[in-house]
Design a protein around this nucleic acid. Sequence first.
RNA 1: GCCGGAGUGGCGGAAUUGGUAGACGCAACGGACUUAAAAUCCGUUGGGGCCUGUGCCCCGUGGGGGUUCGAGUCCCCCCUCCGGUACCA
Length: 880
Amino acid sequence: MSNADSTMAYPFDDIEPRWQDYWEEHQTFRTPDEVPEEEEKVYVLDMFPYPSGSGLHVGHPEGYTATDIVARYKRMQGVHVLHPMGWDAFGLPAEQYAMKTNTHPRKTTKENIAQFKRQLKRLGFSYDWQREINTTDPDYYKWTQWIFLQLYEQGLAYQSEERVWWCEELGTVLADEEVIDGKSERGGYPCKRVPMRQWVLKITEYADRLLEGLDDLDWPESTKEMQRNWIGRSEGANIYFDLVDVDDSLKVYTTRPDTLFGATYMVLAPEHDLVDEITTDEQREAVEAYREEALQKSDVERQQDEKTGVFTGGYAVNPATGEEIPVWVADYVLASYGTGAIMAVPAHDERDYAFAQEFDLPIREVVEGGDIEEAAYTDDGPHVNSANDEVDLNGLDKADAKDRIVEWLEAEGEGEHQVNYQLRDWLFSRQRYWGEPFPIVFTEDGEDKPVPEDELPVTLPDLDVFEPSGTPEGPLATIDDWVETTDPETGEPVIRETNTMPQWAGSCWYYLRFIDPDNDELPVDPEKEQYWMPVDLYVGGSEHAVLHLLYARFWHKVLYDAGVVSTKEPFQTLVHQGMILGEKEYTAYRTDDGAFVSAAHVDADPGSAGGDTRTGDELETVNVDETDVTKDGDVFVLADDPDVRVDARSHKMSKSRGNVINPDDVVDEYGADTLRLYEMFMGPLEQDKPWSTDDVEGVYRFLNRVWRLLVDDDTGEPTVTDEEPDRDQLRELHQTIKKVTQDIEHLNFNTAIAAMMEFLNAANKWDAVPQAVAEPFVLLLSPFAPHLCEELWRRLGHDDSLAYADWPEYEEALLHKEVVEMPVQVDGTVRATIEVSADAEEKDVIATAKENENVARHLEGATVQREIFVPGQIVNFVTS
RNA sequence: GCCGGAGUGGCGGAAUUGGUAGACGCAACGGACUUAAAAUCCGUUGGGGCCUGUGCCCCGUGGGGGUUCGAGUCCCCCCUCCGGUACCA
């Protein structure tokens, strides 16, 4: 039963497609190719979507509406706006679908894009569709390959043997998350890690610049912090430990060189190069077995709490104490961080402490302050037991001890100060079909060579059959007549690189291509780039807080160094829209025989089935209607049985939960303007918010009231008058202009809408609406509900679109009320509200306040110590 | 564990530099219109208490303390929830 069926509803289903056609026909939102002469510009960008087969989700229009409002608002202010949209269309799902149905990913992708585009157009976004780009288009990925060549030529791309999960049965390489317990997630077939030659990008070379660049960006603090943590810069020292009976030394990285005197053993990662050399014959078998086991474990499995490890039989010399200390192999030391080896200081490191306890290794205190019988002490304190003939750390604190010992190590040639990063170089190849081919060939003697620029793009060959390649090298390796080619320079036979680029590649620079999408000479014209960059507002999900945004910043800096772009950072202001959750659900728990169990006794993730914590019985979940629950203190209980607590929360939308809202359905029922307005009205943009169909109807009613305020339902004629607006009407209008303008500037769309609702409530009480008030109001509403407002604008007598009409400006003088209400407090408690003239003097206001009966009553018998007067805000009498 | 964010009516959420807590919307209730329903319109709605009534009093922004004439807002301590991350030496 929807209100939308009512005959009273405004005809959105007629209005919306009509205006969408108009905009398309008139190219209303086309941004000219030429660089405008006027300075002022704004580049408003959405994170472009992956066009999945399931179509648009209600989460998409949230960010897209926000940027659309800003774009439309800025256009009306006469600013040049770049507001494009495109498709991040390479990726695994289309390839998996191809293997299931033997449909070419190109076809699937094309269909999905058509679906997405149709859905977006229905929502009336003001994109310049002439600039649409698609990462799978050879004219686009030509330049992705070109950028790879820039990286290659600058020495930022190298090849390395990296281990991948290979599943013999499935005949394909799997990602980490597709392998569980060494078995494939699909089918449960055994997998093993095999080394593969892969391309890796030297993002670590840019670590410091990526870190520093964050400081000046107007980004959410949490996102900047996540990037900082991801880069993970730390300062410490490399220290060299000579090996006993082996002519080599062991290099370790530590952030606590000051605890060197407490290093009582050492640990190598199982992958460490020196394991073989160090291991003694007696220990070899045990070490080999341990190593074998560790190599087949996934990273997750290796991060179990219990520490495992095995003694190598070898010893190293602690350079500070001269002691010979045992060298172990353990998988709590990661090969990928630091040098893959550590000096273990069990007294002052929790992990080393746990390991030492497990294997009964000595624990020696070198920093005072804790109780090392109980636990590792990692805080600061005076150093002890830390002196030899040449250096003495005793009594020093952490910072001084670090300086002193590093100085000594450097003088002795036993170590040096070292900065380290958690950031790893970027594994840039995938053993897949549906991605950008690398512009690289290999000569017969195995040398890699770049494909010359004028030979780009290296296009993806077609495949007849989509099936697992049967080789870890991926599907392209099976196409001989593509792989085998000739070197255009020498005419010699060469073979092509058969890896493809990861999905991130295309999204690393798409914001540049939007500026100049058809350029076949360059990725982007420098003059246009200088005008439009940086992106002024970038909106997208926080799931991209690290990877996409870090990779894109990295490429941008490389392009900056190559002189392709003029800004050091691509995205000046970044906003993450919150997640839209499903409708709020109340969940009760029940036993087999139908008895309710209070949620207080249920052990389960809220909303999913679980067990009774007292009896262990399995419980089923029941959805309870909102009307059958009631609030009891902080929790909800069944109205009929207040002893039974129920879970009340909204969940992430998912097919399995069946709480997915399809934007198409909402548009069918209420129209695009309602969907847009609702998503903006739900709450602050950045916040997660639950969907509520009742609330959708609320904003729909608002749009209907706007329509009825200005248009006669029977005749379709406007109901406005040409009378001069009175003072009250002007004040209402100008207050609304001010509020809406400021709120859009701050992306506070929910309160902007509330202000317009307040305006409407006021206007509904007027006998008639003057045209001079109606028109600015329609303009204010237009970025939010563009179809409705275009229609109203037309009916109010305008021939052109309002897309470039002047944004209304408020007059300060019209905002003021002549008479204002002021609360009067006695000792901080409001006792009355008085009406005074807005420009009344303090003494008059105080006098009026004192005359108030209730105020007088509270002041009776008391001495007024102070009189607080804040003009227009408050009067407060403080008594003794 | 660590980092980040948030706790305000039955619900989503408002609240400039500290200045009438609960704007706006939903839901609920009452009324008008209607043969009736829907839609629409008007009104009430944080909790408790006093009063014939205009009205008045007390409590109230996760909990406890503090600063201030005045605290949702600032300071200290604690609790809960959400997101991220986790053997990074």
